[in-house]
Design a protein around this nucleic acid. Structure first.
Lengths: 128, 128, 128, 128
DNA sequence: GTGGTCTAGACCACG
DNA sequence: GTGGTCTAGACCACG
C-alpha cells in the first residue's frame, strides 16, 4: 500500500517531501498511470499538516506534468515523461552527490558504510 | 591550489556551498590539519559576497569540530575529533541520504547507477 | 510566565544571554518539550534588538539539539537527545568550568563558597 | 613551580587566560607579594604567542593594581586589595554561575557531577 | 505570520 | 589584519 511519511524539524520542507515521495512512488511503480493520489484534505489530516501544504505539492506535480487534476474527482497519475537530457540529469545527480559524500566523510563514515546506508534506504522505499 | 566557486540564483544557499566545498577539500586531503582557511574578508571579496555570509559558513564548520577560530589569527583546520554520538551521526547521515535518494529516483536513476556515481565521487576525491 | 531580559554594554553578547536564559528555562522546566519559543521577530521587538541577533541565538540552540525549527511555524523545544559523545560533553564542560573557577578565585571566593553558590542555583532552578 | 598554560581555539582570549591565571596564582598563594612575573618576551616565546598579547595582559594587571612595573627590572606582585564590595562580588559570581549550570544541565550533567568536576579543577590549580 | 538568507555597513576585541 | 557582534533592511520560501 502507498503511504507518505514526513519528518518535521529537518531541513527538507514538508511540501518537498510530499512531491519527492510521490515522484519516487511513480518511478518505482508503486503508483501506476491512472492511479488516484490521496485527497488533499485526507492526506493533510493524516499527516497533520496544513491542507495548503498538500495543495501546493500537488500543484507543483501538475506543473511538472506528473499528475493531472480532474475537476471534482481529484488528482491522477499521468504518463511521466523524462524532462531533462541525459547530460543534465547526470549533472544534477553529481551536484547532489558531492555534498553528501563530504558530509558522510565529515561524520566519519567510509565509502562502504555510506553505500550500505543508501541500499537500506532503497530497501525501505520499495518495501513500503 | 584551493579555490572555492559558488553559483547564485540556485536553491543551494551560498554559505552551504562554502561549507560543502571546504568539507570536500578536507575530506580529500586538499586541506590538511593546521592549514588556514582563507580569511573571512578575503574570501568574501574574492567571491563578491558579504563577509557575514562567509562568517556564517565558517561558524557552521566550527560547530561540527572540523575547523577552529584562533582569536585575531584566523580559521584553521583542526585535528578531526568525532564529537557526535554514533546515534546522532547515523541520524544525520540518514537525514542527508533521504533527500538524495528521492532526488536520484526523481531523476530516473536506479540504485546501482546511484551507487556507481558515488563510488566515482570517492575515487575522484582520493585521487586528487 | 516566561520572560527574557538582557543587559547591553557588558561583555556578554546579547545572543549569548538569550541562549543562556532559554537553556535555563528548559533546564528548570519553565519550558517543556513541545513548547514554542517566542517568535524571532516578536522577541526581537520586545527586547528592542535586531531579529538577526535572536535568529543567531536560536540557531545555536538548534545546533545543540535542544530546540528545532519547524518551517513556517516557529521554534519548539525538542525531546532532549544527547547528541555529543561523552568525551565531547566533558570537553565542553571543562571549557566552561575553567573560566568560571578563574573568575571565582579572582573575586576572592574559595572552593567551598563557590560550590555552595552552585548548589543554591540548582535549588532555585528546581523550586520554581 | 609557577607555570601558565593556555589553550587556543576556545572562546577565552589568550590575554584573558594569562590575566586570570596570574590572579589565581596570587589568590592561591603560589605567587607572593614581591615575586616577579615571567618576563614578557620569555613568556611569549614559551607560550608561542605574540609578545604584545603578554604585554597587554600585564598592563591590565597593572591597571588593576595587582602587579607593578619596575623600570628595566620587570613586573612584580604588589599587595592585592579587594576592589569590589561583598555584595558586588556575590552578584558577579551568581551572574557567572547561572549560564554554567544551564550549560551543564544541557550537556546532561547533574549537580553532583558538575561539582565533582569543579573540585577537580581546583585540585589541578593548586597542584600546579 | 513564520523563519532563512543575504547585503551594506559599523564598531569593537584580539594578536 | 584578523574575527565577533550587531543593526537596518530587503526579499523569499513555507504553512
Amino acid at each position: 500500500m502507498f503511504r507518505i511519511q514526513i519528518t518535521t524539524g529537518g531541513k527538507v520542507p514538508i511540501y518537498r517531501q510530499v512531491v519527492d515521495q510521490i515522484r519516487s512512488a511513480i518511478a518505482g511503480g508503486v503508483l501506476a498511470v491512472g492511479d488516484p493520489l490521496p485527497s488533499v484534505r485526507g492526506l493533510a489530516s493524516e499527516l497533520v499538516v496544513n491542507p495548503n501544504t498538500i495543495a501546493k505539492a500537488y500543484s507543483s506535480l501538475v506543473a511538472d506534468g506528473v499528475v493531472e487534476s480532474q475537476q471534482g474527482r481529484g488528482y491522477f497519475v499521468t504518463q511521466h515523461r523524462q524532462i531533462y537530457t541525459k547530460r543534465e540529469r547526470k549533472r544534477r545527480l553529481e551536484e547532489t552527490i558531492a555534498p553528501l559524500v563530504a558530509e558522510a566523510v565529515t561524520l566519519g563514515f567510509g565509502e562502504d558504510e555510506l553505500i550500505a546506508e543508501i541500499r537500506k534506504r532503497f530497501a525501505k522505499m520499495t518495501n513500503r
